[in-house]
Write a protein that binds this DNA or RNA. Structure first.
Length: 644
RNA sequence: GCUGCUGUAGCUCAGAGGUAGAGCACUCCCUUGGUAAGGGAGAGGUCGAGAGUUCAAUUCUCUCCAGCAGCACCA
């Protein structure tokens, strides 16, 4: 055995025998550290206390104070402890995999009977016993053949399959939590007692396909959350409650914005107030696009099968399309996208290079037969309105046009308070059309645009569309969830299929490059995100109900009506509330409905031509002259793009 | 689409093999009250749809539809 040099975080060096473990190192430092240690960082790698170190290394011992490793170990050990508990209660259950995820872990089981909510309680109880037993965690590296034989003997086919998929040069590691054994790459804690027994909770059971493949067995996945202490768990559960409160489906009902019906699954019935919000968004976008040189067009909703064959949708997208047959024996389809229609509009007449870029925009409603299980409120629907546009340009204009779209998207998101925008760049997939040079060019165009804009982005190799690479703009909402909204795609395919051309300076007929882009993406989805982002308390300019003028005594009714009329004249959405109710009642009701401003009018206000202003979420009120309030609100009601 | 769960009044939910209940909302009456629920009375339901078992089904069984969670999908 040779000597190795260990370097500690403070720079101190120590000689040790090769094969020494972090547990032994900790022991050499102090008894209490040895007890508190949970794992180590060895050359930056998360390292089990039991794994030997064979060569010179930077080493640091982790304790529960090191949040990252601590959480990972707690969650990972809990996955094992849960699997052990499940097999102790139901020995015939087959185990599969159980990784750590955000806030917790899950473990997938194969069991004939479904787990019930009561079962989760049983499992939790058993887990606490295992934790209380402080069972030691032990690890060994096994030969493949031995591991396979072991799992075959124990009738664990999923584990056998897992081993088969692990590359041959990787060591197979076995872990024991007490007597319970699992294949695992580790690392793990010293013993089960290091897991806080009061900081985890089993959350739910749901189906999940083995290896994420919908052609394979459906397993049962149990999700758990875990933190370093009880307080962390409590905070997390509280956060979930808060998130549930801002669920747009709930708020949509409470604010009377929209509803759904069984007769039209995945399609929105917009009510007055929701539709007003929707139209406010469209009006905003229309102004922005007009200013950016787009021409708004409109294409048919139902078009002949032949068109969809030309575009390739019939071949590639048919299972997502609503189809219609008519008495004249023609087959039609509802448009799932606007691009083919725009190709036909572009193709009218002859375009010169002088005309390019041509930017066709449409607030078209597209219909897609989404899988039933995918539907989710406004965020995943079967009919939705896109702020769609197609830009036809020369190859030379490509980068500049991408940059313009990028700038426009960011400027727009910023107007809505979304400054935390993440971009995904998806590059050429295996199956693709077009030459490598054109892919180089289009990927470069997207990358250059991002670089010039100083954007950070993540590259998803091979995730692009078959006709071109794409950018996806992902918005993060107030509680950390990501939603894909805007998109920008480069397309060499459709211009070719539709024989689309422009006349170049040389007189040649050339194919333009085409960009598909949507900024909000789906108006429905964007509306849903906005509602959640603001927990229903929309900024004044977006709020569908902006002001309620409420009487305190009926003698104020006339002045209430006068105030409403003046507010409306100033372009503000105002309503009167002269019901025979106390002001407390009215304030409560309109506050719950998220009306941003309540103007209360009693005898004093009538006398002085003032109103008492109460802003949503504020307890304080302010008495101001009506005229002054109207001027203030008029300014607030101005959309951000129209403010000076 | 798959696995599991759910579907009762406008909303939130309780209920039980013998054709239903609460709170809020709604209507009417009383009350004119100063910033998150004033009081009283009343009306309101083919218990998601269809079939089966049963003397009897909203309740049990099956099929379908929709919703929820997750998975898969997501140009």
């Amino acid at each position: 055995m040779g000597q190795i040099t260990l370097t500690f975080p403070d720079g101190a060096e120590k000689q040790a025998e090769a094969g020494i473990t972090p547990a032994q190192i900790a022991e050499g430092i102090s008894k209490s550290l040895a007890k508190k240690a949970i794992s180590a960082q060895v050359n930056g790698q998360h390292w089990d206390l039991q794994w030997p170190i064979e060569s010179d290394a930077q080493i640091a011992i982790n304790t529960m104070k090191d949040e990252g490793p601590a959480l990972e170990l707690i969650r990972h050990d809990l996955a094992h402890i849960m699997a052990r508990a499940v097999q102790e209660i139901w020995p015939d259950v087959k185990v599969t995999i159980g990784p750590v995820i955000e806030n917790g872990w899950y473990y997938d089981f194969d069991r004939a009977e479904p787990f019930t909510p009561e079962d989760l309680g049983l499992i939790e109880e058993r887990m606490r016993k295992i934790i209380a037993a402080r069972d030691p965690v032990r690890t060994e590296v096994w030969e493949r053949a031995r591991a396979i034989a072991h799992y075959e003997a124990n009738n664990e086919p999923y584990k056998v399959e897992l081993i088969d998929s692990i590359p041959g040069d990787e060591p197979l590691r076995m872990y024991w939590h007490g007597d319970w054994q699992d294949l695992c790459r580790g690392p793990h804690l010293q013993h089960t007692g290091q897991v806080p027994g009061d900081a985890f909770k089993l959350m739910s059971v749901a189906g999940a396909y083995w290896r994420g493949d919908s052609d394979r067995a459906m397993l049962q996945r149990i999700y758990g959350v875990a933190f370093q202490n009880k307080d962390g768990l409590k905070k997390h559960l509280h956060m979930l409650e808060e998130a549930a409160k801002r669920d747009h489906r709930k708020l949509g009902r409470e604010m009377d914005l929209f509803h759904f019906e069984e007769v039209a699954p995945g399609s929105v019935f917009w009510h007055q107030h929701g539709w007003r919000l929707f139209q406010t968004l469209i009006a905003y976008m229309r102004r922005r696009q007009e200013a950016a040189g787009y021409q708004e067009v409109n294409s048919p909703d139902i078009m002949d099968r032949g068109l969809w064959e030309t575009s390739g949708h019939w071949q590639n997208y048919r299972e997502n399309m609503f189809q219609a047959e008519t008495q004249d024996d023609r087959e039609y389809a509802l448009k799932p996208m606007n691009c083919p229609g725009h190709m036909l509009i572009y193709n009218q007449g002859i375009k010169s290079y002088r005309d390019l870029p041509v930017k066709l925009a449409e607030f078209g409603k597209v219909h897609r037969y989404e899988p039933s299980g995918a539907l989710h409120g406004l965020l995943r629907v079967r009919s939705f309105t896109q702020d769609d546009a197609h830009i036809y340009c020369t190859p030379e204009q490509l980068t500049e046009e991408c940059l313009k779209v990028n700038d426009l998207i960011l400027s727009i998101y910023s107007d809505f308070g979304f400054d935390d925008v993440h971009v995904k760049l998806s590059t050429r997939p295996e199956n693709r059309i077009g030459s490598d040079e054109s892919w180089d060019k289009s990927e470069d165009a997207l990358r250059t645009a991002l670089d010039q804009a100083g954007m950070s982005y993540t590259i998803f190799e091979g995730e692009g569309a078959f006709y071109g690479p794409k950018l996806e703009y992902v918005l993060r909402d107030a509680i950390g969830r990501d939603w894909q909204c805007g998109t920008l795609q480069v397309d060499f395919n459709l211009p070719e299929r539709f024989k689309t051309t422009y006349t170049a300076a040389s007189g040649e007929r050339l194919a333009p490059v085409m960009l598909h882009r949507a900024l909000f993406g789906s108006l429905e989805r964007f509306t849903g995100i906005l509602i959640e982002q603001h927990a229903g308390k929309l900024p004044f300019w977006l709020a569908p109900r902006q002001v309620v003028v409420a009487s305190i005594v009926s003698d104020a009714d006339d002045f209430v009506h006068e105030a409403v009329a003046q507010l409306k004249k100033a372009g503000i959405q105002a309503e009167a509330d002269i019901r025979n109710e106390k002001i407390n009642y009215k304030v409560r009701e309109h506050s719950l409905a998220k009306v941003p401003v309540i103007l209360a009018v009693g005898a004093r206000e009538v006398e002085d031509r003032t109103v008492t202003v109460r802003r949503l979420g504020e307890k304080q009120t302010q008495v101001l002259p009506l005229d002054e309030v109207i001027e203030t609100l008029r300014a607030e009601a101005t959309p951000p793009d129209l403010r000076s």
